[in-house]
Write a protein that binds this DNA or RNA. Structure first.
Lengths: 260, 260
DNA sequence: GTTGATCCTGACGCAGGGGCAGGATCCACA
DNA sequence: TGTGGATCCTGCCCCTGCGTCAGGATCAAC
């Protein structure tokens, strides 16, 4: 029982134009009559059901063609890959929804327009996304994301301000030591007692800091608020002075590298 | 401080080609130098941040243009609409993932190929989707979806077969009454004692049945397995005979309409 | 033979740009 | 003042998955 395109289209629920399209792409090439009209037969129905099935899970016609033309031996792999693609676009949509939710949250609407709020949230998400690459997955979920989300926290911010005000102070002084101890207390409050996590976070931070000239603008802007380089150098010197006083290091070049 | 396209592109993270595209679409039309080169100024940065923000939540450049050109008074509405669109495509992706999951589930792989399994699942989902429109939301979630998913259940299937075998029997006979009571027991097992739900389900089923010639093929194929019309008419006649025997109705035309 | 329905191919359009080509400009240096 | 390399301009074709004509050929029935 041969069908002409119109019949076959009505039969399968596909439009005539789509069938012609599949023909041109080589997805489904029916026989032709002497005058060139397409002639679909019973086996083509199974073929079109396969095409529709793969299309329904979001596969491109290109890949569908490759799958149906070649052997179907790697079909399971193709389906797994398709699942991965779908999950990826799913997280993309979820992120867009989070952005919308955050931007339209009713808090603090007064000082800037909705568009500016939205832009700020988007740039923040970009910044977070680009930072994630520098950290191990565990370090990021346990520390990076909640930490960077509104970096720096009020406590760190206060500490940075105080350190900046004391940059000229002797690293061996009482005041300097106090600042160092405040920073270590904050670090412990963030990380807890997990030594491996602390190491992972430090490594991630190091990698991120190395690449700080490739950061997105929003992130650079945030870090420009404080003289992070000098703060890090100062706290490093204080640490060093403390170690030396306790006889743990002997020269300036042993066991210590500036954070910058 | 005016910028040329290259600078501005580097500054904003947008490609030169995209900036030219936005210009042509009227999204961001910078000034031009005498020779025709684009000259971006400080205020254009805010504009491009707005464009990127709206694009990041998936809005089309067309709508972005309409929003930025007209007043921003309906921006909240546009964002709500965008959220709805995102949620819609989210459910689409979720459905595709469900399809993939069902088709690649390890059960019963032997009798048909993976592609045929996938096609069957897709067609089933289409059928369910088209049925949902006939039912109220509550009736669908509480009854329609679990019921149609593998319609008919084994118990109904057995009942239908038995009714078909007894279509010639006297509607007032013992055997006919037994079949009617089985059907009412099954109905109660499905619906429970919620009278409003039962009414909603009956209405939805009625609407669906009215439009049964527009059903997708898969659904029609399933229903063709039994002579639903005659089964419904027969059970209706049995019900009627039972009522008449108990003196609840007096004529053939009172208070009863065939299900068909 | 005619006529209305169906079918063919090819071109253009959609969104959001990427890539390339051919030509014009700009900027610094000699 | 010239010149060379970097930058910029426009326009065209490419991608996906078809929809939508347009102009012409073919089919099926009377």
């Amino acid at each position: 029982m041969p069908y002409r395109v119109g019949e076959f289209a009505a039969l399968t629920g596909v439009t005539v134009r789509a069938l012609q399209h599949y023909d041109r792409l080589g997805l489904l090439t029916p026989k032709r009559s002497d005058s060139g009209h397409r002639i679909y037969v019973e086996t083509d129905r199974r073929r079109v059901r396969h095409i529709l099935a793969l299309r329904a899970v979001g596969m491109s016609l290109q890949r569908i063609g490759d799958l149906l033309k070649g052997s179907a031996s790697d079909l399971p792999a193709a389906l797994r890959a398709q699942r991965a693609r779908l999950e990826q676009s799913q997280t993309g949509i979820e992120e867009a929804l989070r952005i919308l939710q955050q931007a339209t949250a009713p808090e603090g609407k007064g000082d800037e327009s909705l568009l500016d709020r939205l832009a700020a949230v988007v740039e923040m998400q970009d910044a977070l996304e680009s930072m994630r690459g520098y950290f191990s997955d565990e370090a990021w979920t346990k520390w990076g994301e909640p930490y960077f989300h509104d970096w720096p926290s009020a406590a760190w911010r206060a500490l940075f301000r105080d350190v900046e005000a004391s940059l000229g102070v002797d690293p061996g002084s009482e005041r300097a030591l106090e600042l160092l101890e405040r920073s270590m207390a904050l670090w412990h409050a963030d990380i807890g007692s997990d030594a491996a996590l602390g190491r992972a976070v430090r490594e991630g931070y190091g990698r991120a800091w190395q690449a700080r000239d490739r950061w997105p603008r929003e992130l650079r802007r945030r870090f420009r608020e404080f003289k992070i380089d000098e703060i890090g150098r100062f706290l490093g010197a204080v640490q060093m002075a403390s170690w030396r006083r306790r006889g743990l290091v002997h020269t300036y070049t042993t066991g210590f590298r500036s954070t910058a």
